[in-house]
């Protein structure tokens, strides 16, 4: 029965690892922090497997866990506790190969960074994880209607920030899939 649990976990792990890794890398400035978030998210999933839904819902559930892990990580002094040697090496390599966007994106990046955390996360989940309203509702644990309203407001605030920075808002595609 223990092996069965391991097998089930491994299946979910294998099919969601790259998504959670991407989620963490896009939100963490250092490979160590991203490694911590990935490791902690899956460690929680292992302990909380009974609560983990099946199929693609598992990915959304894991985004929710990762989001909490990240929030606690940013909040507390607990960061850089967990060390996984091989994982650190992989992440360092990935960070070395990735670029954080060109200079022309600087203004937009700044505008996004300066949004309230909840707005930024909502917009990021759409732009980066490609989630639709229903999926956002699952990740955030609220109704689709609440998602629609919050997203609308977040986009409005981003547009305003961009307009203030002199970026033509008309060129923006911020629709969800």
């Amino acid at each position: 029965m223990d092996d069965d649990r391991r097998d089930r976990f491994e299946a979910v792990y294998t099919q969601t690892y790259e998504r959670i890794l991407g989620y963490a890398m896009r939100r963490c400035d250092s490979p160590e922090d991203a490694a911590d978030v990935v490791a902690e998210t899956f460690a929680i999933a292992w302990r909380r497997m009974d609560a983990m839904p099946a199929g693609d819902e598992a990915r959304l559930w894991l985004y929710g866990v990762a989001r909490n892990v990240l929030a606690n990580h940013r909040r507390g002094q607990d960061r850089r506790r967990t060390r996984h040697v091989a994982l650190d090496a992989d992440l360092a390599d990935l960070y070395a190969r990735s670029s954080a966007g060109g200079d022309e994106l600087g203004v937009i990046a700044r505008a996004l960074r300066e949004l309230p955390e909840a707005d930024r996360e909502l917009i990021s989940l759409v732009a980066w994880e490609g989630l639709d309203h229903g999926q956002l509702a699952t990740v955030l644990g609220c109704s689709r209607n609440a998602v629609r309203i919050r997203l609308h407001r977040a986009r409005k605030r981003l547009s305003k920030a961009l307009a203030a920075a002199g970026v033509s808002v008309g060129t923006f595609v911020m629709e969800s899939a």
Binding site: Y13, E18, G22, M25, A127
Partner: peptide
């Protein structure tokens, strides 16, 4: 533009799940 802000896209990470770090974790 927002998508381009991402440090990495999931597609760039294909194969990571079978890498040494992922398996060790």
């Amino acid at each position: 533009e927002l998508k381009n802000l991402a440090r990495v896209h999931d597609e760039d990470l294909a194969g990571q799940a079978s890498g040494a770090g992922a398996r060790a974790l």
